[in-house]
Design a protein around this nucleic acid. Structure first.
Length: 505
RNA sequence: GGCCCGGUCGUCUAGUGGUUAGGAUGCCGCCCUUUCAAGGCGGAGGUCGCGGGUUCAAGUCCCGUCCGGGCUACCA
């Protein structure tokens, strides 16, 4: 039987990295086994629906290259793939009836006040908290009929068998057992006739022939309920795979106060999708051995359940940053420029940086204009700065001096290198050498500076290089000077040199 | 409170009874070099949560204990 797995998000918000990491695992697992990965939208809780969430789910998946073969957008033989539509078709009602008739489920007419009271009582008396039957689990048909006749609202609960051991076989942790008396009767159908997750997801998993339920470990405690449900229907249970969660630096569940957690925020921050994908694949999973950098194909090839880790992992932004730099350097300048164009044009980029770092955003605008004005020139600048950045968002500041007619002077740099005795002479020398030239090669630039060094008898190139760099860029750091000069070209250099000359005395 | 899961350098991890406990990141240093990076090389960092046991031999198996986390909704 071929592998079938599903990513089944609820449209309650934009997917965060932990959630999307699970989706990545499913895609990788399905692809590895030439199986099917399907997307199912679990929108049974109307009250928590968030506008735009579904769009963000698709977008996050697309961006990271997570694929699926069946879903609301693609169709498939097991549709519909949206639970509210399935509910409307009466799918869940049919199975509820079946359970009710077989005596595996029952109607419970408790009010929310009664339920709250019950929990309070249990808490005070230090009893296990939950619904273990109340008056309705074993109510007579007459009592139920009467309550129904009165039109009292009710829910349908699953009758968890008592005095038994419920066990599941988890692919990562092995056998996990519960005393069935500690498992309460979950609601299957809510008073508004909508199914709960427990019910809808399991029915759908069966109908869609899901072979492996891959989900976060926060579901472990619900697993016995799901197992009982499968057994009640006489269905074969899928393999349960409970993945470890991703935590923040302080060890608690990843949340907003740990910084970015929304998948699409990383895109806006300038992270490359292949970097984020590679990075999150390695939290809670390992290909074994020392391998760390894996592309899409390698991930698929290497992915198996055996590499999944039982313990949760911390999201280490430093390492993601490093990995992003690695992938940035692996791009060609052409490719990088194309990615930058998309990045700079995306409205989320500005929305992301505006409140965090307006200066960075301004530099990004400068780069955007630079690319629009002269893409070939911009590409050379990008090429030269590529080794000095760790995210797409760094390119603005890194390349700024290429695009500014008058890049601001770092006053300390001026103090140190433009106030040396020979600075004025050096600049005049360069001006003379550049006179009339239309372009200048890297080699010519080097020859020019070395010529001056020799002429003046400097032992090292530093006294020539540093003042030139400050004169041309305003800074003491940056790409190789000869390369930078060649890219800048004679015109820009002439303008900057004469401006710098005024600062030499 | 109850039930369940977890625990190897700060962090991600390799490890399936015999290793000087390996790699990566981060940190420090050296090399390269016109600066900053990148790259190369090296260093510090682990009593494998703790305590018992089993065994000639335990990070690896067993028990206990501590700590962390999850669930405990007519949310998923």
């Amino acid at each position: 039987m071929s592998v079938r797995v599903r990513y089944a998000p609820s449209p309650t918000g934009s997917p965060h990295v932990g959630n999307i990491r699970d989706a990545l695992f499913k895609h990788l697992f399905a692809a590895h086994h030439h199986g099917t990965h399907l997307l199912r939208i679990e929108d049974t809780d109307r009250t928590r629906f968030v506008e735009g969430a579904i769009e963000d789910i698709f977008e996050s998946l697309h961006w990271l290259g997570i694929q699926w073969q069946e879903g609301p957008d693609k169709g498939g033989a097991y549709g519909p793939y949206i639970q509210s539509e399935r509910q409307a078709e009466g799918i869940y009602d049919r199975y509820i009836e079946q359970l009710l008739e077989a005596g595996h489920a029952y109607k419970a007419f408790d009010t929310s006040e009664e339920l709250a009271e019950m929990r309070e009582y249990q808490q005070i008396n230090k009893q296990p908290i939950g619904y273990f039957g109340g008056v309705w689990r074993d109510a007579s048909p007459e009592e139920v009929a009467q309550a129904e006749a009165e039109g009292r609202p009710f829910v349908v609960r699953l009758k968890i068998p008592r005095d038994q051991t419920i066990a599941i076989e988890d692919a990562i942790r092995g056998r996990i057992e519960w005393d069935s008396n500690t498992v309460d009767d979950p609601v299957l159908l809510k008073a508004d006739r909508m199914p709960t997750y427990h019910f809808a997801a399991m029915v759908d998993d069966h109908l869609m022939e899901i072979t492996h339920i891959i989900r976060g470990e926060e579901w472990i405690s619900s697993a016995p309920k799901h197992a009982v449900l499968f057994d009640a229907f006489g269905w074969t249970r899928p393999v349960f795979v409970h993945c470890p969660v991703i935590k923040g630096k302080d060890g608690s569940k990843l949340s907003k106060r740990h910084g970015d957690t929304r998948c699409l925020d990383f895109r806006a921050a300038g992270i490359l999708p292949e970097a984020l994908r590679n990075f999150i694949a390695l939290i809670g999973w390992s290909p074994g051995g020392d391998r760390e950098i894996l592309n899409e194909a390698e991930l698929i090839e290497a992915f198996d359940l055996g590499g999944l880790q039982p313990s949760s992992g911390v999201f280490d932004l430093d390492k993601l940053t490093w990995m992003n730099g690695h992938y940035l350097r692996a791009c060609t300048a052409e490719n990088l420029t194309e990615r930058l164009k998309v990045f700079l044009a995306h409205p989320e980029t500005a929305r992301y940086w505006e409140p965090r770092d307006p200066e960075k955003l301004a530099a990004l605008h400068l780069l955007k204009e630079g690319i629009e004005k002269d893409e070939a020139y911009a590409r050379q600048a990008i090429e030269l700065e590529r080794e000095r950045v760790t995210s797409l968002a760094d390119f603005g500041e890194a390349t700024a001096f290429f695009f500014q007619d008058e890049p601001p002077f770092d006053e300390k740099a001026v103090e140190k290198w433009l106030r040396v005795d020979h600075a004025g002479d050096l600049i005049r020398f360069l001006q003379a050498n550049l006179n009339g030239a239309e372009s200048v090669s890297v080699e010519a630039c080097e020859a020019m500076l070395r010529g001056y060094q020799e002429e003046k008898g400097f032992e090292k190139l530093g006294p020539v290089v540093h003042p030139t760099r400050v004169a041309l860029t305003g800074k003491t750091v940056g790409p190789g000077l000869f390369e930078l000069m060649s890219v800048l070209g004679p015109d820009r250099m002439r303008a900057r040199l004469s401006r710098a000359l005024e600062r030499t005395t």
